[in-house]
C-alpha cells in the first residue's frame, strides 16, 4: 500500500517553475512524470480485465452445461467437442501472437526514429489482425453451417458472445492501427510521438493476452475432462457446505 502510494509521489524537484503551463514539447509536466494518456490506457486495461473477467466467468459457469442438458435429453445442437477445430484455431492463435511481435517491432522502430520500419510493422500488425479476424469470421460461418448459432444452445450463446467480444476488440485494434498507419503515411507520426504507437500497442497486446486465456479455456481444455473436474470440485465444495 505505502509502496503503491510512493510510486504516485510527485517527481517535481521544485526548482523549475511551472507558470505558463506547457513546456516546449506541448506536454505540461505531470506529477508522476508519466504521460497521462498512458496512465489512462492502463486504467482502461485494468477495467477491461474486469469486463472480460465477467464474460469468462459466464463462459466457465456455463461450460459443460450444454452436455449436461444433452445427456438429460433436453439438449440440442452441436456440442463443443464436436465442433471446435483445434489445429485451425492454433494457427489463429499463432497469427495473433505474431502480430504482437510485429507490434512491438513497430514501436521499437519509431522510438529510434525509423519511420519506414514503423510503417512496415504497423502494416504487418494490422494485416495479421485482419487475418485473425478473417479466420474468426470463417470459423463462425462454418459453425453456423454446422448448425451452431448464437441461440442454438447455451454453448453457442456463451461461445459466440465471449469470442465475439474479443473479435470486436481486435476489430477496433485493427482500425486503430490502420489510422496510425495512414497518419504516418501523411507524415504524422514522428519519433517524439512514439507514445501514440506505444498506447495502441498496449491495447493490442492486451487483446492478445485475452486470446491466450480464451484459447486455453475455450478450446484446449477438454470438455469431457472439465466436466469431471467440476464434478469433483462440486463434491469437494459440497463437503465443506457450499453446495
Amino acid at each position: 500500500m505505502a509502496q503503491a502510494v510512493a510510486t504516485l509521489e510527485t517527481a517535481h524537484g521544485g526548482g523549475e517553475s511551472h507558470i505558463g503551463g506547457a513546456d516546449h514539447s506541448g506536454h505540461p509536466p505531470t506529477s508522476t512524470g508519466l504521460d497521462s494518456r498512458k496512465i489512462a490506457m492502463w486504467a482502461f486495461l485494468a477495467s477491461d480485465c474486469m469486463f472480460f473477467g465477467s464474460l469468462i466467468a459466464m463462459y466457465m459457469i456455463y461450460r459443460g452445461e450444454a452436455e449436461r442438458l444433452y445427456q438429460a435429453g433436453q439438449g440440442i445442437g452441436p456440442l463443443p467437442h464436436e465442433i471446435l477445430d483445434i489445429p485451425y484455431t492454433s494457427i489463429s492463435a499463432f497469427v495473433l501472437l505474431m502480430s504482437s511481435l510485429t507490434m512491438v517491432l513497430a514501436l521499437a522502430s519509431i522510438q529510434k526514429g525509423n519511420v519506414r520500419g514503423l510503417r512496415i510493422w504497423l502494416g504487418a500488425t494490422a494485416l495479421l489482425g485482419a487475418v485473425f479476424l478473417g479466420g474468426q469470421f470463417f470459423e463462425f460461418t462454418e459453425f453456423k453451417h454446422e448448425g451452431l448459432g448464437l441461440t442454438t444452445n447455451i454453448f453457442g450463446s456463451s461461445f459466440f458472445t465471449l469470442t465475439g467480444f474479443h473479435g470486436a476488440h481486435v476489430t477496433i485494434g485493427v482500425i486503430w492501427l490502420m489510422s496510425l498507419l495512414i497518419m504516418s503515411l501523411r507524415g504524422g507520426v514522428r519519433k517524439d510521438q512514439a507514445l501514440n504507437v506505444e498506447i495502441a500497442g498496449l491495447y493490442w497486446h492486451f487483446v492478445d493476452i485475452v486470446w491466450i486465456v480464451i484459447f486455453t479455456l475455450v478450446y484446449l481444455i477438454p470438455y469431457d475432462e472439465i466436466s469431471t473436474i467440476t464434478h469433483e470440485a462440486e463434491g469437494a465444495l459440497r463437503q465443506i457446505g457450499l453446495g
Partner: peptide, 15 residues
C-alpha cells in the same frame, strides 16, 4: 514505471 505494474496486477488479481 511500477505504477503501471501496481494498477494492472491489482486489477488482474481482483478480477
Amino acid at each position: 514505471s511500477p505504477l503501471f505494474r501496481y494498477m494492472f496486477i491489482a486489477a488482474l488479481v481482483g478480477s
